[in-house]
Design a protein around this nucleic acid. Structure first.
Lengths: 172, 172
DNA sequence: AGATACACTGTAATAGTATAACATTGCAAG
DNA sequence: CTTGCAATGTTATACTATTACAGTGTATCT
């Protein structure tokens, strides 16, 4: 999480506060910068399509369906067949720059790429925004449950549906 | 969990041990019996299609796709259009007699219906069997993570992919 | 520079998952 | 016995995802 700012940046200091008011432009460009650095370090290519898809996902703390992404791409002159979107999304997921949200059949940008983590999502059923929660304790509980019966956990999807602070305040 | 046996029944004494050898016929008929009792108590109808779908799901500790279920139903003289399967599956899920496994786009029978629980699944990537793990600690961790940012967890899907004891022994 | 190899992108076709909408049947309460 | 409602059947369609193959560009080796 170590990076420096001139000004306070709640979105970066507490990257899990997707529901809080924060400097999102910064939050997004920061994630993008980090993805670029990681890609360079790993010797993989963040090509124009891939980069654009990541930017699109970073626009909001929401998950987008592959076809939503595809429509955006097509409108911008990229290919307009499903594999164009799926390939970019698969790449981003492999590199840990984005996550798949199975509950929504959708994809969301990762807000802190590079830090090893199995994600846990908190998804607001009212406004559709989602936040990546600190998943270490959850993952530990899951591995403990597995260990009891000799099951080795290799990967996990943890997704909670509920109400974010804003929507709860609004009584939805 | 309270029910009586003449003989030992690992499947019922530890209903989470889907990967262990156990008296599955009993394990399945027990879950069915409990579902019937619950349906009666709640005043909802476990109709022939619904009951048959539950039986099919109970045959193995595996998740089945809606279309797998549908094919079985069609072969047995029920309707052969998707809504036939989806409606029955939705009913079973609402009543807590089955769960949706989002990672697999599939459905699995609940092995201990009636006990309030948000399920946590351990899915073996080698043999496709799955087990419902005790989810209380996991759910607690998830709710704690939510609470920190004012998020109210209403429901959750927790699914781990990995290797079951048998398949790990077999070196897969 | 030219040849080669490979990763990436584009496109067409198709497979798999899920729902909306409406007609029909059959049980259940009055 | 009829009225109402839940459940089922059926048609059509929407949404999600993958396979397969063709073309393009980029990096590397000589």
């Amino acid at each position: 999480m170590a990076h420096l700012h001139e000004t306070a940046c709640p979105g970066c200091e507490s990257p899990d506060l997707a529901f809080a008011r924060h400097d999102h432009a910064h939050c997004a460009s920061d994630a993008l910068t980090r993805a670029e650095a990681l890609a360079a370090a790993r010797g993989v290519r963040l090509t124009p399509v891939r980069r654009r898809v990541l930017e699109i996902l970073l626009e909001e703390h929401r998950a987008l369906g592959a076809y939503d992404v595809l429509n955006r791409l097509a409108a911008e002159g990229f290919g307009n067949q499903p594999p164009v979107a799926y390939r970019a999304l698969d790449f981003l997921e492999e590199q840990g720059f984005a996550h798949r949200v199975r509950r929504l059949n959708a994809f969301a940008a990762c807000m802190h790429p590079g830090e090893a983590h199995s994600p846990a999502f908190l998804i607001c059923r009212a406004c559709d925004k989602l936040s990546e929660a600190p998943a270490a304790p959850i993952r530990a509980a899951l591995e403990a449950a597995g260990a009891e019966i000799g099951f080795t956990v290799e990967g996990s999807s943890v997704e909670a549906l509920g109400l974010c602070p804003d929507c709860r305040g609004a009584g939805k």
